[in-house]
Design a protein around this nucleic acid. Structure first.
Lengths: 146, 146
DNA sequence: TAAATCAATGATCAATATGTTCAGATGAAT
DNA sequence: ATTCATCTGAACATATTGATCATTGATTTA
């Protein structure tokens, strides 16, 4: 009842290739009426299948040449506060909460090593942070590589 | 001469939030003339700063509900071989090489915990892998959140 | 300093694309 | 056979685009 049928998949595939394609282009490419594409897209967005549209930049790889993972241990019930604090920092790309030895894992990206160091020092000084361990990422190979 | 100035960054940030925003919308949001936004975008695309536009689907987030980071220690000169092996696994989203206590960090995503476990066991048995430590990611908050 | 260079601006205008509505066609399910 | 949902193609008003241009302000160069 709310599965993605072939048309939806084709539409999403087309949007994956060009998320800014006009309704008319999409309609032509998929062999559908413009009104249909519009209705489909609206439905997909309304249902949450399509979460949004974004830009893919070269900078996604090179703007932040210094990247690292910081494992963070937190005392008591400070996790939420630290998490909120971290996710407010521009250098923090993402924060994962985790189980095991650590409580949070922060992905950090900066333009220079100095900046990276400053961010680390700052996080370590946050109230509630008791331990941390950081791994600098030297190179990365993604699954969907080319 | 080909750095991203503040305006470029603001433009890209706006496009990150809505990659389908019209030139007029963008111009209004950034307080620029439409012609300026158009020129900037064209330039960014031409220079390769903007690689393209895509759609973000729900599936991008939920297809791999079980995610984790596996820190991997490797003996001798086996790093390249292990890296090649890892990046061939469909469950491995990305592999980062690193310094410090570990040699590689693998991002793993699976559909079930059982599958996750199988992947971990398999990686640990790879020739050259001497130690590992895995953190299951329980939740993630990205920087570009809303 | 004066001249030259450059990007941004706001304004046009024609060409496209969009949002909206609708009546008919199609096909599946009851 | 009747419902129900969807797709369609058409129509229309409105919005957005692409293209161009003269003007302005800032920065560089001579």
């Amino acid at each position: 009842m709310n599965e993605l049928d072939e048309t939806d998949q084709a539409l999403i595939a087309a949007l994956r290739r060009d998320g800014r394609a006009s309704l008319s282009e999409l309609a032509a490419r998929l062999g559908l009426a413009r009104a249909t594409v519009r209705a489909r897209m609206e439905r997909l967005v309304a249902r949450g299948e399509i979460q949004g549209f974004t830009v893919v930049t070269r900078g996604d790889l090179t703007a932040m040449p210094v990247r690292g993972l910081m494992m963070i241990g937190i005392e008591g019930r400070g996790t939420d506060r630290v998490l909120a604090r971290l996710s407010g920092l521009p250098e923090v790309q993402a924060v994962h909460s985790t189980n095991g030895r650590w409580d949070l894992i922060a992905e950090i990206g900066t333009r220079t090593l100095e900046e990276f160091d400053r961010v680390l020092a700052m996080i370590r000084k946050l109230d509630g942070v008791t331990a941390s361990e950081t791994s600098l990422m030297l190179s990365t190979r993604r699954a969907g590589r080319r």
